[in-house]
Design a protein around this nucleic acid. Sequence first.
DNA 1: GTGACCACCTGGCCGC
DNA 2: TGCGGCCAGGTGGTCA
Length: 287
Amino acid sequence: MMNQEFIIIPGASNMPELPEVETVRRTLETLIVGKTIRDIDVFYERIIRGSTVTDFISKLEGQTLSSIDRYGKYLIFIFGELTILSHLRMEGKYFIKNLDEPKEKHEHIIFYFTDGSTLRYHDTRKFGTMDLILTKDIFTNSPIIKQGYEPFNEKLTGTHLRSLLKNRKTAIKSALLDQTVMSGLGNIYVDEVLFLSKLDPERQANTLTLKQYKDVVTNAKKVLTKAVELGGTTIRSYTSSLGVTGRFQNELLVHMKEKEPCIICLKPITKIKVNGRGTYYCTNCQK
DNA sequence: GTGACCACCTGGCCGC
DNA sequence: TGCGGCCAGGTGGTCA
């Protein structure tokens, strides 16, 4: 039995992207790998996909967590032949608590381990999902097969990105948010990548030069690598002295910087909407 | 194949 | 103070 309540926050951001999910993975890996599920409570059934809730519970009971991986924004909990693909969407987060801790309002799934601890999935907006699949199907028959390469993958090059976007007339910002193009980028980091690449977020995706596609890939790697090192971004934190908080918010150059001076030209950062997404950029530096 | 729009969901914010 | 309406966001589905 644990003596303290651990609160796991995905980089403490309210919008987990690849770095925040990686922070959660690393933290959970040290705390729950090797534990065996005794029971599961599902309080909000729509989170479960790929199986009935009854199957989800019955198949996982007695299973031991062997490892936790990640692809893009998906957490991959591997229990031998079974795997849970967990997507945190907007506000999903995991807590590890003692058995006797009362259930909080937004805790929708509780995994009870045989050692008396619990893993609790908390999601204010109920957008998150958990797919129960066969481990052998992870890369052949699961939501992950639709994902594009992560920026860290050597196969993701400027040439590859150009081939994917050559017919896409949508805004480059929208294209980069498409996880089938590049896996792991979300609204925050796309703004940063486009700023470093000096690209107008509304620029048509198929109009970039090869050098600009290469710059996007290079800067995506740079931004995500730095963000992973710093544990992600905390834009809205939660009260917890034990929380795992990110520090990348101190490195943000444009996101959430509306009206603040651009670090290059000192002109105020502008906020617009690109296909409904709040978007921050410098109208002077990004063309 | 592509783009636009909508639904999902709830807390926070704003105006009345 | 309380109420209603709007906004934020990632993804999947539908339709043109």
